[in-house]
C-alpha cells in the first residue's frame, strides 16, 4: 500500500522525519537514516570551523540530492535570529522548505509562540515554506496556518525528553482543525510513542534523540519506521470504540 503525504506540494512516502544531531559519528547517522526509511532530515545551520576546513561534513554522508534537507532554527530565541538563520540556509542549500522553531527558554525549550507567529508571517512573505514547531494549542495552530505555515508541528513533550505524548487530546484537536499537515515534533521516546502520534491522525512524526540516544540507534530507527507505519495503518483502519466494561469475545449462546 502506498500511503504518501504532501507538504507544500512535495510528496513523500515516509511519514518519519529524523534529525541528524547527537549521533556518535556521521557513519552511524547515515546508517540510522537508512534504517528509518526517512526521506527528510532536519539539519542545523552553524558557523564553519575556519581553523579546520577539512573536517568531515554532513553533506559527505547524507546526500542532499537524495534526501530532503530541512534546515532548522534550533537555538534561536527570537524571530529575527530564526529568520536570519533561514535566509543563510536558503543561500547555502537553495531550499525554501524549512523548519521554524523559536524557543522561549532553555530549560523547557518550549516555543515562544508570539515570536514564532511573527517569524512565520515574515518567512511566508519572503517565499519560504515554513514547517513550524509550536505549542499544543489548537488556536495558535490555526493562527500559524493563516500566517503561512505549510505544516503544524506541535510538541508531544519537551524536546529531547523522551517522555512520550503528554497531550493526546490537544494533538487530536489540532489534527481535526488543520488544513495543512500536522506532525508531532519532539517528545517521542520509544516506538509506541510514534505509533500513538500516528493513531491520533497525525501526518507524520519528527524525532531525533529517541533514535540517536538509543543503545542501538540503527535498530531503533528501524523500530520507529515500523511504529509510524503501524500507527498510521491503525488510524486508517479505525479503532474500535471504547467501553467502560467487559464485552466477551466468545459467543454466549451454546454454553454447556
Amino acid at each position: 500500500m502506498t500511503d504518501s503525504w504532501s507538504v507544500a506540494g512535495r510528496t513523500f512516502n515516509s511519514r518519519l522525519i529524523v534529525g541528524t544531531g547527537k549521533y556518535k559519528d556521521f557513519e552511524q547517522n547515515a546508517a540510522a537514516l537508512e534504517a528509518s526509511g526517512a526521506q527528510i532530515v532536519t539539519v542545523a545551520v552553524r558557523r564553519v570551523n575556519v581553523s579546520d576546513p577539512s573536517a568531515p561534513m554532513l553533506t559527505d554522508y547524507i546526500d542532499p540530492k537524495k534526501i530532503t534537507y530541512l534546515p532548522n532554527t534550533a537555538g534561536c530565541f527570537t524571530g529575527d535570529e530564526a529568520i536570519r538563520t533561514l535566509r543563510l540556509a536558503r543561500e547555502a542549500g537553495g531550499w525554501d522548505l524549512v523548519k521554524l522553531e523559536v524557543l522561549g527558554e532553555a530549560k523547557t525549550l518550549y516555543p515562544d509562540m508570539r515570536e514564532t507567529l511573527k517569524a512565520t508571517e515574515i518567512l511566508a512573505k519572503e517565499g519560504f515554506l515554513p514547517m513550524v514547531y509550536c505549542a499544543d494549542d489548537p488556536i495558535a495552530a490555526k493562527q500559524l496556518e493563516d500566517a503561512g505555515a505549510v505544516a503544524i508541528m506541535p510538541l508531544g513533550a519537551p524536546i529531547g525528553s523522551g517522555l512520550g505524548l503528554q497531550n493526546k487530546v490537544m494533538i487530536r484537536l489540532i489534527v481535526e482543525g488543520a488544513k495543512v499537515p500536522v506532525l508531532v515534533d519532539a517528545g517521542v521516546g520509544t516506538a509506541s510513542d510514534a505509533s500513538v502520534a500516528m493513531e491520533l491522525g497525525c501526518d507524520g512524526v519528527l524525532m531525533n534523540t529517541a533514535i540517536a540516544e538509543a543503545k542501538d540507534p540503527v535498530m531503533m530507527a528501524g523500530a520507529m519506521k515500523l511504529a509510524v507505519q503501524s500507527g498510521r495503518a491503525a488510524y486508517l483502519a479505525g479503532r474500535m470504540g471504547r467501553r467502560q466494561y467487559a464485552d466477551p469475545s466468545s459467543p454466549l449462546a451454546g454454553l454447556i
Partner: peptide, 10 residues
C-alpha cells in the same frame, strides 16, 4: 562576515 554551513541537528 559570517560563513555558515549545515551540521547535524534535530
Amino acid at each position: 562576515l559570517e560563513i555558515v554551513h549545515f551540521v547535524g541537528g534535530g
